[in-house]
Design a protein around this nucleic acid. Structure first.
Lengths: 208, 208
DNA sequence: CCTAAAAACTGAACGGTGCCAAGATCAGCG
DNA sequence: CGCTGATCTTGGCACCGTTCAGTTTTTAGG
C-alpha cells in the first residue's frame, strides 16, 4: 500500500517502517516522560507517540506494560547502585562508607523521585514475574551488607539484622521526604548528608 | 419518563432513585474492594456498581477520584492511630511504649497493605489538596513524638530528630516487608514484635 | 543471490477508565 | 402548591491497555 515505506511526521523527520532500535528508544523515552511529566503520563501510547510508532509496536518488545516498567526500574536500580558505589569510593572506615552509601541512596530517591517510586511500585514488587529485576534490586542491599560483614568478629545473623535496620531507616526516610511528610530543613543539619551522619550516630556504638 | 421511580436489579432488590446515603456507602464499598480485589480494581465505576448506582453518581459527593481516595485514606489513618494507641495502653516506660507503637504501625501496614499503600500513595501526597487528610496523617507521628518529648531534659530539637529516625525505620521496614523485599522470618526473632524490640535496642541508649 | 521464515510494525477494534454536560427526580421549605 | 438545590441518570468524550489480522522488513539457509 505504501510503496515508499517512509512516512512523514509533523517535524518532517523521515521514519522507516522499521524503527530499528525501538526497545532502547522506548526505555529512553520512558525515562524522559517520567522526568518531565510524571508517572501518570507514562502510558504505552504516549511512549509510542514519543518514538514515532503506532500504539501496538511496543508489544513486539515487551509482553505488557509491566514488563516495560520493570525494564525501566532495572535501569534505575543500576544507576542507584552506581551512585552509591561512586559516593563511597575512597572511604575505608566502615562508618564513613555506610554514611556515604545511605546518603547517596536518599539523594537518588529525592533527585529522581518519579523513577524511584516506579522502582518500588507495588505493581513490580512481585519479583517472580521479573527475575532479572530482583537481582539488580538487591544490589543496594548488598552494598550495605558488605560493609558490615567485613568487620572483625562479624556475626552473620547480627549483620543481616543491622543491614535491614539501616536499610529500613534509609528507605523510610527517603519515602517520607519524597512524600513531603518531613521537612529536612527543620533540623539543624540542613542537608541530607548531615542528617544521615547524625542518624548513623544513633547506632554507631553497635556498628563498631 | 420512569413514572415508577423504582428500578429492579438482577437480585430483585428495589432501588430508589435517590440512594439516600451514598457517600458512606461508597467509602465502605471502597474498603471492601480494596481488601478483596486490590487497589487496581478500585475504580469509580466499580464503586458505583457495588453501591447500585450509575457511574456519575459519585461525583455528587466527591469532586474527583482523588478526593474519594483521600477520604478512604483518612479513615485508614484514623484506624492506624487507634490501633497504635490501643496497643500502647498500659505501658508506662518510654521504651515499651515506643516498641508497642511501632509494632502496631508495622502490623497495620502488613495486615492492611492495600489500604496502607493507598494512604501513602503519591497521588495523595500533595496534601495541599487534602487539608483534613494532612491533619489525620500526622497523628501517628505525634504519638511517637509525644513519648519522646515527655522524658526529662528532653531537648525539643533532639526529640524531633529521634522521632523522625524512629518513624523512618518503622515506615521503611513496613514498606520493605509489604514489598516482599525482606523476609522477617530469616531472623531469629520470628515475629514483628521481636524484630522491633531488637531494632529499638539499637538506639536504646540514646533514648534514655 | 534468492527465497522462506521470522521479526517488526500497522490499523482497527474491544472493553475499561475518569470525567463532564444535560436532564430527570426528589426532599424540604416558602 | 410551586420553587430551589441536592441527588442521581443518560449519553458521550478522550484516553488507556491489549489483542488480532495483515503488511512490511530483516534475517537465515540453500
Amino acid at each position: 500500500m505504501n510503496q515508499n515505506s517512509a512516512r512523514e511526521t509533523a517535524c518532517g523527520k523521515k521514519l522507516k517502517y522499521h524503527h530499528g532500535a525501538l526497545r532502547p528508544a522506548l526505555l529512553e523515552a520512558a525515562e524522559k516522560i517520567l522526568l518531565e511529566d510524571g508517572i501518570d503520563a507514562l502510558s504505552l501510547r504516549a511512549l509510542a507517540r514519543a518514538t514515532g510508532v503506532t500504539q501496538a509496536a511496543p508489544y513486539s518488545h515487551f509482553r505488557d506494560k509491566d514488563e516495560l516498567l520493570a525494564a525501566v526500574a532495572e535501569q534505575g536500580f543500576q544507576r542507584l547502585a552506581l551512585a552509591m558505589v561512586e559516593s563511597a569510593t575512597g572511604q575505608t572506615a566502615a562508618r564513613a562508607r555506610i554514611e556515604r552509601l545511605i546518603t547517596a541512596y536518599i539523594r537518588f530517591a529525592v533527585g529522581n523521585d518519579q523513577l524511584f517510586r516506579l522502582m518500588f511500585s507495588p505493581a513490580l514488587s512481585d519479583m517472580r514475574n521479573h527475575p532479572t529485576l530482583a537481582m539488580t534490586a538487591g544490589k543496594s542491599y548488598a552494598l550495605i551488607s558488605a560493609v558490615l560483614a567485613k568487620r572483625e568478629n562479624a556475626d552473620p545473623e547480627e549483620t543481616r539484622f543491622q543491614t535491614l535496620a539501616i536499610w529500613s531507616l534509609c528507605h523510610g526516610l527517603a519515602q517520607l521526604i519524597m512524600d513531603d511528610r518531613v521537612n529536612i530543613e527543620q533540623f539543624g543539619t540542613a542537608d541530607i548528608a548531615g542528617f544521615v551522619r547524625r542518624a548513623v550516630g544513633l547506632f554507631a556504638a553497635q556498628l563498631a
